[in-house]
Design a protein around this nucleic acid. Structure first.
Lengths: 229, 229
DNA sequence: GGCCCGTATTGATGCAGATCAATTTCAAGG
DNA sequence: CCTTGAAATTGATCTGCATCAATACGGGCC
């Protein structure tokens, strides 16, 4: 009872919030909570969609591999966010893969339930449309940054994004450095050098996955102006 | 009369096809055909959305500029395709700008009409969702390619994409070489050198915007395998 | 403690593509 | 025809990041 969608801490920020009480109940009945270990795949590129996933805890990575076999981490999915909805709604096979990056608990809402909810609450599709529009905007920014910004600047911007609204100059990298590197599209060796450079300048202090940022304002300046010395 | 949406050559392939006859009539009444000269902007990044655009003839370029001021051509919109629908549907300001790349004729469907059509035909939103999902998939591929493939390979792939279903080894570049360069994220000087290289190998022959491809099959092979000599 | 294995770091070197600077080509207009 | 300006090409050089190859670190486990 306490373990229901409406009691979920993230419910009100999710797409499901547009559902009225009784439809939300349908969600509860149909959903199944599943657990994944770090590295375990939730679905692969090319798989047929089976429904929509919702992260309750942990972290999901959305990954894509190209023809030559090397993969890239496209984005992260945090607790409270949905993923896999694109294919679930269009019916097309997944164009990307999803995998657990930590111990993860996700809820799976089967396609049939999704279809029913869509039919009964038209606002739901619009909620997912907005989500997709946001993802698309982020993808466009990513394309721009990848071609125009140096990997140093891209990493600084990632740090700011990870910092979120936190004013405290202390944050934790959610994933390994290899994955961070993959996220900004560079080799892990380069990642090391970039981190070392930032460390040497005193812009930030890294120990393991802990990052301390003495002067967030300075970091913001440097990540904005690509030309800053 | 003959100049109506239903008579439009592209109608059946567009999102509007899901509309029944009477709703399509509403489209006809409300839409306004507009003309743009090459280089003229349709809307800018940050503008408030005013409706959905539909290309009848010519070519539209979707562009984005970053903080440092340099811009990139993200994608092309061809006759029969819609653009600007993302902001029109979410209400958020445009995240990209749209400009005419040739003499262009577009139809503009005002936001109010769009809202009405959405309310009367639920399938319409799904049609746009599919469109956005396709754009998103393309953006993901673009990110991957930009980080992993050489500019030569990216250009060859663009050539294949522009060739479309054409088996004939003859195609026309839709835009200037600067814009082609901007489309794959390289400088125009590099573009020249890449084209020269391809020319020298006899993979394709360029004169102005005309491109002749003696052996499309060979081009396909080279664009697939990044490692091909 | 010592061993082992995966992650992270560091160094040396190479190359793709950017950058700067000159031409050359070409289309439009007088 | 000549002029003009934008687009395209070419050359010389520079640099950021990849690549290849070692080495160091760190944490689980015997």
């Amino acid at each position: 009872m306490s373990d229901s969608c409406q009691n979920c801490a993230h419910f009100k920020d999710s797409e499901w919030a547009v559902l009225g009480g009784c439809n939300a109940k349908g969600l509860d009945c149909a959903r199944r909570s599943r657990h994944f270990l770090p590295g375990e795949p939730v679905y692969h590129e090319g798989d047929e969609p089976s429904g929509i996933y919702c992260v309750s805890s942990g972290l999901i990575g959305i990954r894509k591999v190209d023809a030559e076999g090397d993969s890239m981490l496209l984005r992260l999915v945090r607790p409270g966010q949905t993923f896999g909805y694109r294919s679930a709604l269009t019916g097309a096979p997944h164009g990307v893969s999803a995998e657990a990056l930590k111990d993860v608990r996700v809820c799976h809402i089967p396609a049939a339930t999704v279809r029913k909810a869509l039919a009964e609450e038209p606002g739901l599709l619009m909620a997912f449309f907005r989500h997709l529009a946001d993802d698309m905007a982020a993808a466009e920014v990513k394309v721009m940054e990848t071609v125009s910004a140096s990997c140093r600047v891209r990493f600084l911007r990632l740090l700011m994004a990870l910092g979120g609204g936190e004013d405290a100059g202390l944050l934790e990298l959610p994933v390994s450095r290899q994955d961070i590197a993959s996220l900004i599209g560079v080799r892990s060796e380069t990642m090391s050098r970039v981190i070392r450079g930032i460390e040497d300048e005193g812009l930030a202090h890294f120990s393991g996955r802990r990052v301390e940022i003495p002067d967030p304002h300075r970091l913001a300046e440097e990540s904005a102006g690509a030309l800053a010395a």
